[in-house]
Design a protein around this nucleic acid. Structure first.
Length: 727
DNA sequence: CTTTCGCATATTTTT
DNA sequence: TATGCGAAAG
């Protein structure tokens, strides 16, 4: 057995070995916090303080969970303990609760044993339907309602206790209630439910809580700054007196407030458990001194809830300055980034492609970057820009699979009853849904009754009947998830239906990817059920399938970059409006602070070199916008930055200058256009209105036109001054 | 019932 | 730009 503690600094050592009271580890970026968690687990086992199955470790993503399992095994070494990590519960909050609820949810009144997890897309779909199309303009938008509802649920608020003073709040309250009912009827749980119901269960049934408390003697939670109140309550319940609790996090890296995260939970913890030991990790092992100085300066502009003495430091070298670059537009910016990478790899041979990461604020920014890399044949690896499982084709297949588990899933039924189109129209579907409304019993029974009582036209009737038969057959079918999916695809002839759609190629690719996922799952979990598969799929994060592929540049959002590190990091789009991202009604101070943390997270991903790039002009929603440099750039210490922007841009890099240039160009273009007037062209003049060109004389700027105007007769004009427009 | 077209509309991050 | 939705045509 290795000496687990040999390479730890005194602070880390304390965090690993402290016992007997709650432990709060405030670990800055790159200070080895994951290492502390894994070594702590290994240490517990090594010293025989508990059995593997008595440990519960909560991570932020499935990917982090997988890595932690591997690392624990790696630390424990030796044959006899290999596989030990498999018996430790290492999960995300959601995966943990989903597993627990699968066993225990039947204790709760009126809850089905089988449930599916409603993804974001499902949730939005429900709300959109509840709001209705006719009111779409005046009502609060579905996405906003959803975020209000999720926030409420995360704070353990029910539709009953939802405070409604304004008329909008009253409307949301209604929608909230209807949304909850819909979820319940379809046997679905949303993300908040997974936590909420677990908390409720523990609250209502103390004996169940006791059972789990007894079982998990050691509880560790990583990335605690991004937990919400419901999760915090869950931890408090499971932790009991908190003696064996270890929380790790960094309030400066809290970037999920918008999703309900409450970094204050960390502060509150020391009050709730007064004997909490707080350990701060500030020695950074990742980045150069200059990178840390810049990051420290940036984050110092935020209030520091955990105290002022939180600057990261390193024994290592200062390293290179950070490089700033501004290009005329996003094509230039992307091209410049790609060129830096290309030169570094090919000409200077300093780095390999996998050393680079390009970070951006919004997924939409990735396309131009991809183009630039592809142009130079630079291999890259990107985290899906649209959530893969939100793709229409994937959601269709998921709907089929869900119906196999929960035939009452009305949402899924509605989705696929006529997909692929099998001749069941709106009218037939509504007829069936009406029946379900009247008698919300077992969905297949109701559907069968519609068929038997000939409530729908013959063609549709036969189609629905065949669909129901298909479900019966597939439900009784044994075998793995992969086989099931393949049979399903064949039986509904899904691929040939997709052939006909617009972007058949990418859709078919997605279906291919999905069957691959199923196959991988079946290989990894030979005994895995369809429920297990759907659970994994619903709780997957885009980052989970992201392996830092050998030989590829990584493209990802700043959010997705959390927890990762790269030798060289480019952060693209350092512009007001993008970083910080501001919507139409602007941002409040608290939002700006979160944006600042986001940039802080981005900068601290880098080991040796950071590039901060921006574009003076950028296409946004089909429009050109001129963004000022990000306010965060001016917060950074100048001596630690070098500006490689082209000289002419540095000279006239104000937005006003650029607009002036644009306007001039436009004028020139207009003049050029007027030169191209031909005989017979129909034109428009601001004063004389419609006209037609009769003759032309002269060239270029001297071009003279004879125009016959509809209302004002024949005029001779000098094209340059006339400002004629073609009609 | 299915397909296609045109119009409107736009926050972003994701368990 | 790109997407999605609803109405009209097929």
């Amino acid at each position: 057995m290795k000496n687990l503690l040999a390479f730890l600094n005194p602070d880390q050592l304390q965090a690993v070995t402290h016992r007997g009271s709650p432990l709060l580890v405030l670990a800055g970026a790159g200070t080895g916090k994951t290492r502390v968690v894994t070594v702590r687990i290994a240490h517990l086992l090594d010293r025989g303080e508990c059995q593997p199955q008595e440990i519960l470790a909560i991570t932020f993503t499935n990917k982090a969970a997988g890595e932690m399992r591997e690392r624990v095994n790696g630390l424990l070494g030796g044959e006899e303990v290999r596989g030990t990590a498999a018996r430790i519960w290492i999960h995300t909050f959601h995966a943990f609760c989903a597993r627990l609820l699968r066993r225990e949810i039947h204790h709760l009144p009126e809850r089905e044993r089988e449930f599916v997890i409603a993804t974001k897309a499902d949730q939005t779909a429900i709300l959109k339907r509840l709001i209705g199309p006719d009111r779409a303009n005046e009502e609060p938008k579905a996405s906003r309602v959803l975020s209000v509802i999720s926030r409420a649920k995360n704070n353990l608020i029910t539709p009953g206790s939802f405070p409604a003073h304004t008329s909008e709040e009253k409307r949301i309250k209604e929608l909230f209630a209807a949304y909850e009912q819909e979820l319940r009827e379809t046997g679905a749980l949303d993300y908040a439910d997974l936590i909420l119901l677990t908390v409720t269960l523990f609250h209502e049934y103390p004996d169940i809580l006791d059972r789990y408390r007894g079982r998990f003697r050691h509880l560790l939670v990583d990335e605690y700054q991004d937990t919400n109140t419901a999760q915090h309550d869950l931890v408090r319940m499971l932790a009991g007196d908190g003696r064996n609790l270890c929380l790790v996090g960094d309030p400066d890296q809290s970037i999920y407030r918008w999703r309900g995260a409450e970094p204050e939970n960390m502060l509150r913890f020391s009050e709730e458990f007064p004997d909490t030991r707080v350990v701060k990790l500030l020695e950074n092992y990742r980045s150069t001194g200059n990178i840390l100085k810049v990051a420290n300066t940036l984050i110092a502009a935020n209030p520091r809830p955990m105290g002022e003495d939180k600057d990261l430091w390193t024994k290592g070298e200062s390293g290179a300055k950070l490089t700033v670059y501004a290009g005329p537009d996003e094509y230039d910016e992307s091209g410049w980034i790609a060129t830096q990478i290309f030169n570094s790899v090919h000409n200077r041979r300093e780095n390999k492609y996998e050393d680079f990461a390009i970070l951006y604020r919004t997924n939409a920014q990735s396309r131009i970057l991809e183009d630039a890399l592809r142009k130079r044949s630079i291999p890259y690896n990107i985290i899906a820009d649209v959530r893969f499982y939100d793709r229409r084709e994937i959601r269709d297949l998921l709907a089929y699979l869900r119906l196999l588990i929960n035939p009452n899933d009305l949402l899924s039924f509605r989705r696929i009853v006529n997909v692929p189109s099998r001749g069941v129209g709106k009218i037939s579907v509504n007829r069936i849904l009406d029946e379900v409304d009247k008698d919300p019993g077992h969905l297949p029974d109701v559907v069968r009754r519609c068929i038997d009582q000939e409530l729908i036209p013959p063609r549709a009737r036969r189609a629905v009947e065949r669909l129901m038969d298909l479900f019966d057959e597939l439900t009784t079918r044994g075998g793995g998830v992969d086989g099931l999916l393949e049979e399903l695809l064949e039986r509904i002839d899904y691929t040939s239906w997709l052939q006909k759609s617009n972007d058949a190629v990418s859709r078919l690719e997605n279906v291919e990817k999905f069957t691959d996922t199923a196959r991988d799952f079946a290989t990894a979990n030979p005994k895995g059920s369809l429920e297990d598969f759907l659970e994994e799929v619903s709780l997957a994060a885009p980052i989970d399938d992201f392996d830092e592929q050998a030989g590829s540049v990584s493209l990802l959002t700043l959010h997705a970059a959390k927890g990762l590190e790269f030798p060289v990091v480019f952060i693209s789009g350092l512009e007001e409006g993008l970083i910080p991202l501001t919507g139409r009604r602007g941002k409040r101070q608290a939002d700006i602070e979160e944006e600042r943390r986001l940039l802080y997270v981005g900068i601290t991903r880098a080991q040796y070199k950071v590039y901060l790039t921006r574009a003076l002009r950028r296409n946004l929603e089909g429009r050109k916008v001129y963004n000022k440099p990000s306010r965060f750039l001016s917060e950074l210490p100048d001596p630690l930055l070098e500006d490689l922007s082209m000289r002419n841009l540095s000279i006239m890099s104000t937005t006003e200058d650029l607009i002036a240039v644009e306007t001039e160009t436009k004028k020139i273009k207009q003049t050029a256009k007027s030169v191209s007037f031909q005989l017979g062209d129909r034109v428009w003049h601001d004063k004389w209105g419609r006209g037609i060109i009769l003759s032309r004389a002269g060239d270029g700027p001297n071009l003279k036109l004879t125009v016959k105007f509809a209302r004002h007769g024949i005029k001779k004009l000098v094209a340059k001054y006339a400002n004629l427009q073609k009609m």
